[in-house]
Amino acid sequence: MHLNSRPVAIGARLKKYPSIQTLGFKPNFQDYSAREQKLILNTEKIYYPTAFYADLFNAMGKKTFPSFHTYKFALDKIKQTAIFNMLDIPHPETKIFYGRKQKQNILKSFAFPFIAKKARGSSKGNDVYLIQNNEELLRCLKHKGPAYIQEYLPIDRDMRIIIIGKKIRLAYWRIAAPDNFKTNLSQGGVISFKPLPQKALDLALTTALRCGWDDVGIDIIERNNQFYVLEGNMKYGTKGFREAGIHYKKMMVNLIVEEKV
């Protein structure tokens, strides 16, 4: 049970809802009032701690939602691929290449066509490329940073499965627009609420639990009767909730107040 009458949050996501006591982000802890500092230090769990404070609360042993691990893996495809491989979670063949000999090493491991992605910081299908020849590869390698290369598994749809807490809260298909290999809604993909295979739902939930992620959209594809986890999206959009008739922020307030997350 919370030590105060209302759950305490730092991030501003639910600041319009009075049942959540949102303090706002202040990088200088001393800028919080004495009362706010006491709330932060004494409350059993802090909601939306921000990436800055999630590390600190984890070091202190304080619970947060989202979890420390959810923040640590956000927008980092390299770390996600590493943990998928370590935990034997099915994932398309993926390698990360560093240094000046990237092109030579890439073509030793992958045949055209294959996928190249920005390794860190991208979302909404941005910085994802279908590489079909040397010219396209050279153009892609002009971008700074490591080359994140993944086998191309031809699909026209994938599955977005959103886990909040330790439960699936929403699941739907994302169907790519014609002549586009990306299924992201921001790239013209559309939503379908046709039932998803139970194996995909089970894989998504297992992945989230094993990786320590408690607020994530898991993307899964099916190819030749095999299911693969593409990635975990900690900054997932809420259009799917709207199309399903669910008010996302009100749902989150209820889950928090009822201590279900």
Results as ranks from 00 to 15, higher is better:
Phe68Glu: 09
Thr183Pro: 01
Lys72Val: 13
Lys166Ala: 02
Ala59Gly: 11
Met251Cys: 04
Arg157Ser: 10
Asp214Asn: 15
Asp215Cys: 00
Lys63Ile: 02
Val128Gln: 04
Asn254Cys: 08
Ile164Asn: 01
Val8Phe: 03
Gln37Lys: 10
Ala51Leu: 12
Ile115Cys: 06
Asn254Glu: 14
Tyr152Ala: 00
Pro66Thr: 09
Lys167Ala: 11
Ser192Leu: 05
Phe57Tyr: 12
Met251Leu: 14
Pro90Lys: 06
Leu205Arg: 00
Ile191Cys: 07
Leu14Pro: 02
Lys199Thr: 13
Pro178Tyr: 11
Trp173His: 14
Pro146Thr: 03
Tyr53Ala: 02
Thr70Ala: 06
Arg120Val: 15
Lys63Leu: 05
Gln80Ser: 13
Arg160Met: 05
Ile175Gly: 00
Ala111Phe: 09
Ala51Ser: 14
Ile163Glu: 03
Leu170Asn: 01
Gln187Met: 12
Val261Gln: 04
Asn184Pro: 11
Lys124Val: 09
Ser33Arg: 06
Thr206Trp: 00
Met86Trp: 13
Lys16Asp: 15
Gln21Ser: 12
Ile10Ser: 01
Gly11Ile: 01
Phe52Lys: 12
Arg169Ile: 03
Gly61Val: 05
Lys260Glu: 14
Leu255Phe: 14
Val257Ser: 06
Ser67Ile: 06
Asn4Tyr: 14
Glu44Ser: 10
Leu196Ser: 08
Gly99Tyr: 03
Lys77Asp: 02
Leu75Tyr: 03
Gln226Ala: 13
Cys211Glu: 02
Thr94Glu: 01
Gly145Leu: 08
Gln150Phe: 05
Lys79Ile: 08
Phe65Glu: 04
Val257His: 04
Arg139Gln: 13
Tyr228Lys: 10
Ser122His: 13
Gln102Asn: 12
Ala147Cys: 06
Phe114Met: 07
Ala59Leu: 15
Leu196Pro: 03
Lys63Met: 04
Arg139Met: 10
Ser192Glu: 06
Leu39Ile: 08
Met86Gly: 10
Glu136Trp: 00
Lys117Met: 12
His247Gln: 10
Ile221Tyr: 02
Lys95Glu: 10
Pro7His: 09
Asn224Ser: 10
Ile78Thr: 15
Asp88Met: 08
Leu255Ala: 09
Gly240Pro: 07
Arg210Gly: 03
Ser123Ala: 14
Thr50Arg: 05
Leu201Asp: 01
Val253Ser: 11
Gly11Lys: 00
Gln187Asp: 05
Tyr32Thr: 01
Ser192Thr: 06
Phe68His: 15
Arg100Ile: 14
Leu39Gly: 04
Tyr228Asp: 08
